[in-house]
């Protein structure tokens, strides 16, 4: 824990919590513009959240503490991840927590809690959403861990700060086949974990096509606001992870105000750019059938395995 890390952690907490709805707003605007509409403006998710926090809190009959605690757990796992992963600075706020495996497991824990809350409602939609979500989670884990493997081999560690430092020291490594393959695999993982097209349509109204939405049909008011905030933050975190792992330039290496400003701006720019690309891609694609999603995830898994193989065989035994 050093000054750089702690400053970074505080900045990240503020920027990601406050700025994640902005990311959602930008993505919706990009979609709107490409569809020929005008769109509500990038600040609309903030207005939505502000209004939701003012609404009535509801306790549906038959639900238990798990239903009430799940939004808190989801926010907690996302905030903890946002604080410890090196996005803005190259050091982490809490070194022992900045392990790639630990971060991935934390994010999975948030999803699992939400799935339990969905089952707790006792409705068929809740169970359906939970069932689909954990199936996708189960199939995304192998890709995630094997990609972590591929990325940590050149850096010699799964510690995120070490991986970022290794990439900063040797920028050419990003263009290696291992890195490129891992990047594609992790992009597919990001799409699957955050529930974007082609895995899941976040704007659908047809319950039988829902995965993430079906789990939150019963949530209202402040609970819903927390979940929507946590979902935007998760997207921010995943895009930020992609940026830190594959394009860490601009990251602050010293706690001077200038470096921190550049680091924050670079992080924001990369995340917004990534989100815009995702949103633009969504205009050109349709959601694939639920039972075709495993094929997509299996393909990304093969890419991750190819990344590990190439990191060993092409780089030589080092």
């Amino acid at each position: 824990m050093n000054a750089l890390g702690i400053t970074g952690g505080v900045i990240q907490a503020v920027v990601i919590t406050g700025g994640a709805p902005l990311l959602t707003g930008v993505m919706r605007q990009v979609r709107a513009k490409l569809e020929g509409r005008k769109g509500p403006g990038v600040g609309q998710p903030w207005r939505d959240l502000r209004k939701q926090f003012r609404k009535e809190a509801v306790a549906p009959e038959g639900t238990s503490e798990i239903f009430r605690v799940a939004p808190l757990a989801l926010v907690a796992t996302t905030v903890v991840t946002a604080v410890v992963v090196p996005f803005v600075t190259s050091a982490s706020a809490v070194e022992p927590m900045a392990d790639l495996f630990a971060v991935v497991a934390l994010l999975a824990m948030g999803t699992a809690t939400l799935a339990l809350a969905a089952i707790d409602t006792g409705t068929a939609f809740g169970g359906m959403g939970a069932s689909r979500e954990v199936t996708i989670l189960a199939l995304v884990e192998p890709t995630l861990l094997v990609s972590i493997f591929a990325l940590s081999v050149p850096a010699g560690s799964t510690n995120l700060a070490a991986i970022v430092a290794a990439t900063l020291n040797d920028p050419g490594r990003v263009l290696s086949p291992a890195s490129m393959l891992a990047a594609i695999a992790l992009t597919v993982v990001t799409v699957a974990e955050t529930g974007r097209i082609p895995v899941d349509n976040p704007a659908t109204h047809l319950e039988l096509t829902m995965v993430h939405e079906a789990m939150i049909l019963e949530y209202a008011g402040p609970d819903l606001a927390l979940i929507e905030l946590a979902s935007s933050m998760r997207l921010c975190v995943f895009l930020g992870l992609l940026a830190s792992l594959f394009a860490p330039w601009g990251i602050a290496a010293s706690p001077t105000p200038l470096a921190l400003a550049i680091g924050t701006a670079a992080f924001a720019a990369k995340v917004v750019a990534g989100g815009a690309v995702l949103a633009a891609a969504e205009v050109f694609m349709a959601k694939i059938r639920l039972f075709r999603v495993p094929e997509l995830l299996a393909g990304s898994f093969l890419l991750a395995v190819a990344a590990v193989a190439s990191s060993y065989f092409l780089a030589g035994a080092s």
Binding site: A73, A76, T77, V80, V83, V84, V94, E95, P96, M97, D99, F101, A102, L106, G156, S157, T158, N159, A162
Partner: peptide, 14 residues
């Protein structure tokens, strides 16, 4: 080997 984890800090943070 470079690697560390702290389950206690993780839980505390959550």
């Amino acid at each position: 080997l470079a690697g560390e984890v702290s389950p206690l800090l993780l839980t505390l943070g959550l």
